[in-house]
Nucleic acid binder design. Structure first.
Lengths: 311, 311
DNA sequence: TGTTTACATGAACAGCTCTCATATCGAACT
DNA sequence: AGTTCGATATGAGAGCTGTTCATGTAAACA
């Protein structure tokens, strides 16, 4: 039979296309070119003699055959991943310690659920979350006081490995009905006359200031707040503007509590990294933590995209 | 992650190795060379960083890692096959008619169980088994009185496609304690002084006579019996010798009812084919019947080997 | 109507998997 | 021990497949 030129690669492809809602987006996740995805999907459709994807609609729709094959993918791929995890445990052992430090305030949103999932699968790994804001999180790694830190920069450093997690968009937040809301996106100058509400961190840790406003010579007054909800409250009550990751504000946008606009025509994009000691990067329980975070984030967070660099 | 260079190909490989009990035998089933299997298995072990197969023992044993991966294969591959079957139904429809004629007497042993399995999966296909011994089974195909016949020869004929099923060994049967039983294998001359007990078919349909005894100029007396058990009974009661497929006599050998010996040093091997009209060969419900027979036979019948020709 | 965004396509390159030929290994036999 | 036989390993080369790059095309948006 089976004309089985079907491979797991094809199932992963179809799953990515279905989840990402388009070939281009799927290509990004798979770290392939759009061309490769198109070719490969066509090849798959050819060997099956069936159309799998309705190219017309956007987001792309699957045909009946596509849905059947996707069902297979969703059934089979988790089994494969589970088996590979078991093999990794056989190879490297199933126990370890993972002390995690987090640089970014909003990261707890996705980190906690990902940790819960991870715990189910690696019960032998001791998970610890280091509290408080860390001035030099990478230092913690070298000191041996942490094993993995979530950072927003990948500054090369000896003995340190930065595993890209995903890219996300920072959105400018305005109170509903604000005059700037008529624009599709905000230029640096638009921030000039407003207070900027931020977490209490140095300016060089704020992408909006460092990468957008400072280069344009704009220095709006700042006001600090500890909690995400507090920032949102201040914006909603017209005390100023803020910039937060798209995923963190999605629930508030739905309720119309604030409105969001792009920063710059193409948006202000940032990346997150899981930073570990080089020696740990290949250890199964560490590598799988990073994978778990990625999988979980893509499934849960709206509007994130694959990281640029090698995974 | 997943260092996933793992593909279904690898799972099929491991499954074949485990079932066949050796790389060489697995290669035969997969229609690959022994070299390819060895290379591929090594490549798989290398990417995983684990040994999967204990090469020392015979039949080959699996390591813990190998067993885990085999478990994955056994869970995932049937799902894949089921999905491909569903896709085939989507493409070609799930209904049809399959009137089957059988040339060989012992074939019912494996054909009936295979048909039962097939029926579960293709409930829309009308299965019929044509009774009686057929003089010219391929004629039935061309007449349109049958859709698939099981034959032991693949004589090329226009509009006819022979799908190889498997190869099997014909064993010579002796009563326990027979003088010839001291030999490891029987030469043509050994048959000279004994009655040969066969099914009631022309001589040119009996592989033992056509391919072994006739070329050696040996023409032993024959005695015919309709049923396999009758043949065995006659052998056991020292009325003569017989030659039957290894799978058909395995249960009697276990009980010591008769003993079996190879015919010639390397044994007398024959092949079976599923013969269909060329036009039907690509139809999903026909192709999958052939696949089902093969899968089922390899799982059930002892001592059969993969067919030689393309599948 | 120009612009943008997304998918398709063809050519060329790179890497992979197969086969062929041959080496190595181990067990059984003498 | 030496020989033989069956089975696995290994190296080199051939062919195929998947990927990228560079473009082409089509639909949606402004």
């Amino acid at each position: 039979m089976n004309s089985s030129h079907i491979e797991l690669r094809h199932l992963r492809l179809l799953q990515a296309v279905a989840e990402a809602g388009g070939l281009t987006a799927a290509a990004e996740r798979l770290h392939l070119t759009q061309s490769a995805v198109s070719h490969q999907l066509k090849a798959l459709e050819d060997v099956l003699g069936l159309t799998l994807v309705e190219r017309a609609a956007r987001p792309l729709g699957l045909t009946a055959a596509g849905r059947r094959l996707l069902a297979l993918a969703q059934a089979a791929l988790p089994q494969v991943d589970a088996a590979l995890r078991d093999l990794a445990k056989l190879k490297d052992g199933d126990a370890g310690e993972l002390r995690i430090a987090v640089e970014c305030h909003t990261c707890y949103d996705w980190l906690m659920p990902a940790m819960d999932r991870y715990r189910d699968v690696w019960p032998g790994v001791e998970l610890d979350l280091l509290g408080g804001f860390q001035a030099d999180p990478v230092g913690l790694l070298l000191d041996g006081r942490a094993d993995l830190v979530i950072t927003s920069e990948a500054t090369p450093r000896a003995g340190i490995f930065h595993a890209p997690l995903f890219g996300f968009e920072m959105l400018a937040l305005l109170p509903p009905g604000h005059p700037l809301a008529i624009k599709k996106w905000l230029a640096p100058a638009d921030f000039a006359d407003h207070t900027l509400i931020t977490y209490p961190v140095p300016e060089d840790r704020l992408d909006l200031i460092r990468r957008v406003l400072a280069p344009a010579g704009i220095r709006p007054p700042r006001r600090e707040a500890q909690l995400t909800v507090a920032i949102l409250q201040l914006v909603a009550s017209r005390r100023g503007l803020a910039a937060l990751p798209a995923w963190a504000v999605a629930p508030y946008l739905e309720r119309g509590y604030v409105v969001a606009r792009r920063i710059g025509k193409h948006g202000l994009w940032a990346e997150l990294y899981a930073t570990v000691r080089e020696a740990d990067a290949t250890r199964a329980f560490v590598a799988d933590f990073i994978e778990t975070v990625k999988r979980d984030s893509f499934a849960r967070l709206p509007g994130i995209r694959a990281a640029m660099s090698p995974s």
